[in-house]
Nucleic acid binder design. Structure first.
Lengths: 236, 236
DNA sequence: TCGACAATCAGAATTCTTTTCATGGTTTCA
DNA sequence: TGAAACCATGAAAAGAATTCTGATTGTCGA
């Protein structure tokens, strides 16, 4: 879920933008002046700001500079909305630190596409490490799990669960904790669901004997403990 | 340390470019006409020239041709800055010997990215390599794909997609990433479009069995994994 | 300008995944 | 030993993502 702030004085344009973005799953907040925008920025962390070039009182340009200078790297990306086709204006707009601009009028599709691109680029991709325990290997770059070298076919949930376990071994977690960590804080599912996925993961790991790594901790939850035991040799 | 020459008559744009490039570690020199530019080119070796399409007196286009013809191979790569969106202009610009062009207005990120790419290309003489995996062969020089020696007929998009995959194997990419890499940063198309081209590509690769190399990574995107040749086992 | 080809989109069909539910088995402890 | 709590499991329902298809639009050369 991404949160977007529109800073734009014309209600019609705000309306149009909201109408475009909300069906696509964005949470949209609106401000028609810099002051309100500043307040909203204090209340939430935004993933993107859509800033009108012209704002009453203070120009969006100035406000963009202010935001970018104040928060340095941590500030959300900004897309400028400009009605002007004037070249130098645009250049100046970009100079202020905006990450992209859109010239009015724009199509909903273009807006959505640009927003997506800007957010994606601004999202920090953290380097995930490839992990391995005795022939059980998980590689986030390939997004691939192999058992003694053989690729295994995991569903997204199974993959995430296994990656969580392998990156947090030797430690018991409650179902609640697992749901928070693997499903995310705001996933509302039954705790029993974890059992089902554990079950499937174990099934997948059984042929290579790695299912023993996923241990039930009665009264608590589960624990991933890679033992140093020898495994079933799969002859080819 | 890379040295860049800007040939551009509008001070604001020069300023904006310098503002973008200097923090990124480039040394930037400026000229607002061809004559000054010629002088500066005599004083230093430049790694890149940013050339305005329109220059007073003499067009940047002409000047580009002049530089390219005079110095032949040793001349630095040139990126044309053009305010026109007109296709034919762009083609002409590239005809003149420019290595890339950027349409104004452009974002700092775009500028930086293109400069980096052009410099890298010119430095490493990164020629496109012919690639092959188990009878699936792609040759950028001939622009030809062969399956077990038989020529295949690919559309441009299919070709680009296949080349991207073959040059980045064993790695999962999201549709977004694929669009960025294959279609380019500012192509705003639906992600589903990738699916369609993947399907076509698979269809073409099916007769030779290479379609198995393009793997769906559910919830993520796609991955190109050239597997080892299968050994059919017949049990009795 | 027409025809051929390519690219894109939108939606239907399909396939796969996730969740929930019901049941039965196992462990714990009084 | 038996009740209560806990866990494992299979299967079905609900939900998502992907694939496929046809229509439409755009592009290029004759």
């Amino acid at each position: 879920m991404k949160r977007i702030l529109i800073v734009e004085d014309e209600p019609e344009i705000r309306e149009m933008i909201r109408f475009t973005l909300e069906p696509r799953g964005y949470v949209v907040n609106e401000a028609d002046n810099a002051q309100d925008a500043r307040r909203l920025l204090g209340e939430h962390a935004y993933d993107l700001i859509l800033m009108d070039w012209m704002l009453p009182g203070r120009s969006g340009l100035e406000f963009t500079k202010e935001i970018k200078q104040k928060n340095q790297k941590s500030s959300p990306p900004i897309i400028m909305l400009t009605a002007r086709a004037d070249e130098s204006d645009k250049v100046e707009g970009l100079d202020s630190g905006a990450d992209d601009y859109i010239t009015k009028p724009f199509s909903p599709r273009e807006l959505a596409a640009r927003i997506k691109a800007v957010i994606r680029r601004s999202t920090h991709i953290e380097q995930e490490l490839s992990l391995e325990f005795n022939g059980l290997h998980i590689d986030p770059v390939q997004h691939l799990v192999t058992l003694q070298g053989d690729p295994a076919n995991l569903s997204p949930a199974e993959y995430n669960l296994l990656y969580f376990f392998m990156s947090h071994p030797e430690r018991a977690y409650t179902r609640s904790q697992i749901l928070d960590k693997v499903w995310g804080d705001n996933a509302y599912v039954e705790e029993r669901t974890v059992d089902v996925h554990i079950r499937r993961l174990r099934k997948i790991l059984t042929p290579s004997g790695h299912d023993a790594y996923i241990q039930t901790v009665r009264g608590v939850g589960y624990r991933f403990t890679p033992t140093k035991q020898k495994h079933v040799q799969v002859t080819s």
